[in-house]
Amino acid sequence: MSFDKKLKAFPSVREHYDAMAAAGDVDPDSAQLALADRLDQLIEELGEKRLSKKSSALGWLFARKAANREPVKGLYIYGEVGRGKTMLMDMFYALVPVNRKRRAHFNDFMADVHERIHAHRQAFKRGETKQDDPIPPVADALAEAAWVLCFDEFTVTDITDAMILSRLFGALFERGVVLVATSNVQPDNLYRDGLNRQLFLPFIDLLKRHVDVVNLDSRTDYRLEKLNRQPVYVTPLGDEARRQMDAAWDVVRGGAEERADVLVVKGHEVAVPRTAGNAARFSFGDLCSKPLGASDYMAIVRRYHTIFIDGVPVLDYPRRNEAKRFILLIDTLYDHHARLVISAETTPEKLYVAPSGTEAFEFDRTASRLFEMQSEDYLQAAEAGDPRASAESAVSSA
């Protein structure tokens, strides 16, 4: 049964959360409970607004008068990695009684916006429209498709995005669109230190007028707390290893939907086949059989907090290029305190079997790091801080 169908067995976010707590899937947390109640309140407000718009003879009897006068304010939910923001927003999205709704990663949404703007400008050049400003028609189309917009990981790093957000969302809010977003930063810190940030500040003011800002200051990263009970280095390969890796992945996902991602690094694309929030899952071949380098691994660790690698084989001299990449990959993850969950054919010290060569010497360090990355001290250090902060600093200085 899909996540969406499971959710619809519950009438509210709070009841679904309570059921997950009763099953041991989450540890009850006061901040998460408060957010669940706030999301249920928003569902009620949207339901009333939807009912007030109905043209049936009885519809107006059940609608509160205020629902006609006041626009519905959305929610901007921020907090540190792994606090349950995405999980709770996904519950809201599945349960909100609105047909015209859209849930997207913010970067995917902005890519769609840029494509629509480009298409409109091309149509204007061809004389197919007299409207030279693309924002109003793009906003019309987006609002027609979705009354409720849910964004995961709202962040602004691109100057092109920053420059159009105020006009675009001003137009969307004028058309009644309701925004629900998760982010790792509070609104005032969006696009912090960005180029020409003063031009972006009106968007922050606009955003705060149309959403209630909620800090999900949960006591801990519940996913990583549960992941600590799972093995993080699984060997040997086989059905049991796959089962354990899948179980650990389910813990990290926390019920969130999977999606594929693509990172653009120095003009080329790096495919990320499976992601959920700040976790990414790869096969060994995805990372080490393709011509990837240090900048690619840096981009991955900058974007993702927890890395899963399935199916690391025993490597020998004919596979020394894959061994070199694996050494570089582990060095990068280790240096940036990323959390690693891995399945391998054998224990770390036996993964490279060539008797000589530079790789054999360097692999001793890799084996040592793989052992250390399983230790309680390392896992606690990875949990305590956001590894992407140090990764971003390293990328910036590279």
Score class of each variant (00 low, 15 high):
residue 235 T to Y: 02
residue 309 I to G: 08
residue 304 Y to S: 03
residue 359 E to D: 01
residue 357 G to F: 03
residue 221 D to M: 03
residue 272 V to P: 09
residue 391 A to H: 05
residue 381 A to R: 06
residue 250 D to F: 08
residue 322 E to D: 06
residue 247 A to Y: 13
residue 367 A to D: 00
residue 275 T to K: 07
residue 17 Y to L: 12
residue 373 M to W: 02
residue 318 P to K: 01
residue 217 D to Q: 08
residue 186 Q to L: 10
residue 361 F to I: 14
residue 142 L to F: 08
residue 66 A to G: 11
residue 322 E to G: 04
residue 238 G to F: 14
residue 175 R to Q: 06
residue 356 S to D: 05
residue 198 Q to A: 14
residue 317 Y to I: 03
residue 346 T to R: 00
residue 43 I to G: 09
residue 389 A to P: 01
residue 253 R to T: 09
residue 146 A to R: 04
residue 376 E to L: 07
residue 54 K to L: 12
residue 92 F to W: 04
residue 296 D to F: 09
residue 270 V to K: 10
residue 380 Q to N: 15
residue 313 P to K: 01
residue 297 Y to S: 03
residue 286 D to V: 12
residue 118 H to V: 05
residue 126 R to F: 07
residue 288 C to H: 05
residue 158 D to L: 07
residue 168 L to M: 09
residue 337 H to E: 13
residue 21 A to C: 15
residue 387 P to I: 09
residue 91 M to P: 08
residue 206 L to F: 03
residue 152 D to Y: 04
residue 12 S to Y: 15
residue 312 V to G: 00
residue 268 H to I: 05
residue 184 N to P: 11
residue 230 Q to C: 09
residue 1 M to E: 08
residue 256 A to Y: 07
residue 225 E to I: 13
residue 348 P to L: 11
residue 395 V to W: 12
residue 340 L to I: 06
residue 20 M to S: 11
residue 280 A to M: 05
residue 283 S to E: 02
residue 273 P to N: 04
residue 204 I to M: 03
residue 124 F to I: 00
residue 250 D to A: 07
residue 25 D to I: 06
residue 371 F to C: 00
residue 42 L to T: 15
residue 207 L to S: 01
residue 283 S to C: 05
residue 49 K to Q: 13
residue 345 E to M: 01
residue 98 V to S: 05
residue 58 L to F: 15
residue 36 A to H: 14
residue 232 V to H: 11
residue 145 A to N: 08
residue 263 L to G: 07
residue 78 Y to D: 06
residue 66 A to H: 08
residue 266 K to C: 07
residue 49 K to P: 13
residue 342 I to C: 01
residue 208 K to H: 00
residue 189 N to D: 11
residue 390 S to R: 15
residue 299 A to F: 09
residue 252 V to H: 10
residue 347 T to S: 07
residue 36 A to L: 09
residue 310 D to N: 15
residue 94 A to I: 07
residue 283 S to W: 06
residue 342 I to N: 01
residue 298 M to N: 03
residue 70 E to R: 08
residue 104 A to L: 10
residue 250 D to I: 02
residue 297 Y to V: 04
residue 86 T to C: 05
residue 123 A to H: 01
residue 364 D to T: 07
residue 21 A to M: 12
residue 6 K to V: 15
residue 232 V to L: 04
residue 329 L to G: 10
residue 23 A to Y: 14
residue 348 P to T: 14
residue 315 L to M: 13
residue 342 I to W: 02
residue 145 A to E: 11
residue 42 L to W: 15
residue 260 A to S: 08
residue 5 K to N: 14
residue 285 G to E: 10
residue 29 D to A: 12
residue 163 M to R: 10
residue 285 G to D: 10
residue 364 D to K: 05
residue 342 I to L: 05
residue 39 L to P: 12
residue 165 L to N: 13
residue 123 A to R: 04
residue 143 A to H: 10
residue 348 P to I: 12
residue 159 I to E: 10
residue 301 V to K: 00
residue 365 R to D: 02
residue 281 R to S: 12
residue 270 V to W: 11
residue 335 D to M: 03
residue 213 V to W: 00
residue 232 V to K: 05
residue 169 F to A: 03
residue 44 E to T: 14
residue 7 L to I: 12
residue 91 M to C: 03
residue 225 E to Y: 12
residue 142 L to K: 02
residue 131 Q to K: 09
residue 343 S to D: 11
